[in-house]
Structure formats: structure tokens, C-alpha cells
Write a protein that binds this DNA or RNA. Structure first.
Lengths: 209, 209
DNA sequence: GTCTATAGAAAGATAGAC
DNA sequence: GTCTATCTTTCTATAGAC
């Protein structure tokens, strides 16, 4: 065959990178397969050698976007947990993230769009969301006896504030208000994560499938 | 003229009601003007006697959806503030809201979609969002000397968690996880609103245009 | 104000050459 | 694997009758 397996893999990743960028910037329906493939440096026809449908590439973009690996590396840096947490929140709730100067988080940029898509897309979103919260719970040392399947309630609340904060900031046309929103979400979510839910009655955790 | 001004107004409100419902359920691009007008009991052609474009009806749907009036009434009920707050959060972060059995909040259901639309839409979203936070700040009695233009930072953080929580819950395909998410967001946002930001350094507030 | 008819553009997905 | 060509559907917006 004239194209190596490795070449196909590289092309696939190029398409997924364009997908994350374009779907984040314009939404699912506003991006055509023409747009997507042009951004990846190819044409329409090549698309279907990699994905069966537009919906499939959307789901794959969600799954492949979140580098949980990177989150894992952070915890092993040996730096203080407080410092690590501050860095994470500073990066996530930042103007750079709103302006997409860094890789956008699909949990925030796709959220309302995902609710309107098919079951496979919603499942991909759920997996990534649960994975992120599981990882954060573990890194912060708040896991229960259920092992790394556990997600702490206060982590869910904190990530909801983070995702909500950046989503709203992106929609606002008032930079000053967006700025205040990002700052206060950063402070409050840090407080929630740092206390480890200890300030709340019954530090409840549970497992998810 | 064969149609009274009152009749036109009623038709307009019917279209806006359908717009909120359909745009919430399917997203901006997935709703055609045909769909919208059919839901309102009319046909395509009548649309342009009420709105200049699809984008305009979207912006109007955001503005007209949020009944700040209702929020005002609540505060005058004379019931304890804690009880009032609990009711608000129970209604907002509920399955009924996710399932759209009550009128959906465009701040949550439109958020990522608004970021991709034109300036008028983003301005409508910003106005409604600022108005909600201003109102909550005032009702909770945390306003500053700046008057009712003031928005308290902790209110911004709490509404971000509320909006983020319901947005994510809607996207998830795991009802159990969605349930836990709604509950923990309710508890945490209530805690943030109830303390009035007193647990945080420098209870900062500022004005917005 | 509301209707039907239509113009004009663009979309998702497939077919077949290379 | 990637290309161009095309089928088929759907959309926004306008025109003109009532």
C-alpha cells in the first residue's frame, strides 16, 4: 500500500486537532466537513477513510482532547499540592483559555452542544468528565476505600464551577465582568478543593460506572 | 388593519416561547425557522413580520426568558431568606429543569452556543447574566455603597457553579452521576451564597456597566 | 399579518479515478 | 488514502397573493 499505517495515524491526529479547534470556536453545526478537512490540509473525500460520520469525529475529539496524562504528571512533580493546584486553576480559568491560545477544554466548550447530540457523543463526554473528577479526587488524596473509581462530591462541585466559569466568560461581551468572574471562580474553586470537603457535613464520596 | 396590535403582540410572545423551547432542546443551528414557526402554529413567511433574522429572535429569546420579576417577588414573600434560597436552588438544580419540564434558563442552556454568535446575542446574554447577579446580590443584602449596580464576587462564583452544574448534568448520559452533581452543586452554592462571602478575604464587590 | 412559491446557497455523504 | 464530481436534502430570506 502506498500509505503507511503511521501516515494514516498522523493524518487522523491532524484531523482531530482541527476538529477540537474548529468545533470549539464555532460549534458542531457551524463547522462543515469541508471546513474541517481544509483546516487539516486535506479535502472532503478523505474524511470518510478516517471517520464514519461527523458525529463520530466529534465524539473522538472529546475523548482525545483531554490529556489526563498531563494531569498525572503534574502530581508527580514533587511540588507542594497547593502550588500545583494554583497552577492548574490559573491555567484553566485564564484569558488564554477563553481566547483559545491554549488547547480548549471540550467539557467547557462543548457542554451545551453535547446535550443535543447522539448517545455516543454524550457517552464520550461523560467518560471524560468522570475521568477528570476521578483523577482530581485521587490526586488530592480524598479517595475512599472504593479505590480510584471514587469521585468526591466537593470535586464535582468545584469542576462545575470551573467549567461554568469559563463557559460563561466566553459568552460575555464585557471583558471586565469576565475578568472578575474568572478570578472569583479561581478563588472559590481552589477553596473548595483545598479544604477537601471537610467544611461540609458528611464528606460523601461514591463510585461511578 | 385586519390584525390588532394586541394580536401581533400575542403572536410574538408565542414565537418567543417556542424559540426558548426549541433552541434549548436542539441548539441554534439545528432549529430552522420552519420548525420554529410550525411549533408556534404558523408558517415560515409570517416570521419576518416579527423579527428581522434568526439571530434576532435568538437574542430576544434570551432577554425575554428570564423573569427577573419573579425573583423580585420572592424576596418580598416575607419568608426567611434561607428558605427562599433553598427553594430557588432546589428548582434550578433539579431534574425537572434538566428535563425542561419547567422553563429552561438560557444562561445555562445557551451558554456555549452564545459564544459562537454575533455581538447582539452576546450582549443580550451579558445583560441577563449581569442582571441576575445584581439582583441576587441585592436580595441577599450584600450590596455595596455603589447601589444596585453592584455585584458581589461570591455571587458570581455561586451562579457559575449553578449554571455549570445544570449544563453538565444535561450533557451526561449517567443519571446517577448527574444526580450527585446537582445535589453537590446545590449544597455548595447555597453555602457560598449563605455566608455572603464572609469566609473569604476582602469581600470584594464592584460595579458593571 | 399570514400565506404559498421560489430563489440561491450550502450541507452530509457517496462514487469512482488515481 | 486522497482526490474531484455529484446526488439529495435542507436552509435563510424574499416576492407577491390575500
Amino acid at each position: 500500500m502506498p500509505y503507511s499505517e503511521e501516515h494514516k495515524q498522523r493524518t487522523r491526529e491532524k484531523i482531530l486537532k482541527s476538529a477540537l479547534e474548529l468545533f470549539s470556536r464555532h460549534g458542531f453545526d457551524a463547522v462543515s466537513i469541508d471546513d474541517l478537512m481544509a483546516d487539516a490540509g486535506l479535502t472532503r473525500g478523505a474524511f470518510y477513510a478516517h471517520f464514519r460520520s461527523k458525529s463520530e469525529v466529534y465524539a473522538e475529539a472529546i475523548t482525545s482532547a483531554v490529556s489526563l496524562r498531563r494531569l498525572s504528571e503534574w502530581q508527580d512533580k514533587g511540588e507542594g499540592q497547593g502550588h500545583w493546584l494554583k497552577e492548574l486553576l490559573l491555567g484553566y480559568l485564564s484569558h488564554e483559555h477563553v481566547a483559545m491560545e491554549v488547547s480548549p477544554c471540550p467539557l467547557a466548550f462543548f457542554s451545551t452542544d453535547v446535550a443535543n447530540r447522539d448517545e455516543a457523543v454524550r457517552h464520550a463526554y461523560t467518560s471524560v468528565y468522570a475521568g477528570l473528577n476521578r483523577m482530581l479526587t485521587r490526586i488530592l488524596g480524598h479517595e475512599t476505600s472504593d479505590g480510584d473509581e471514587a469521585i468526591a462530591d466537593h470535586v464535582l462541585a468545584a469542576t462545575a464551577m470551573m467549567i461554568g466559569g469559563i463557559s460563561i466568560a466566553r459568552a460575555l461581551d464585557d471583558p471586565q465582568l469576565a475578568d472578575r468572574l474568572l478570578n472569583t471562580c479561581r478563588e472559590h474553586s481552589e477553596a473548595i478543593l483545598a479544604t477537601g470537603g471537610r467544611s461540609r457535613k458528611g464528606r460523601r464520596t461514591a463510585t461511578v460506572g
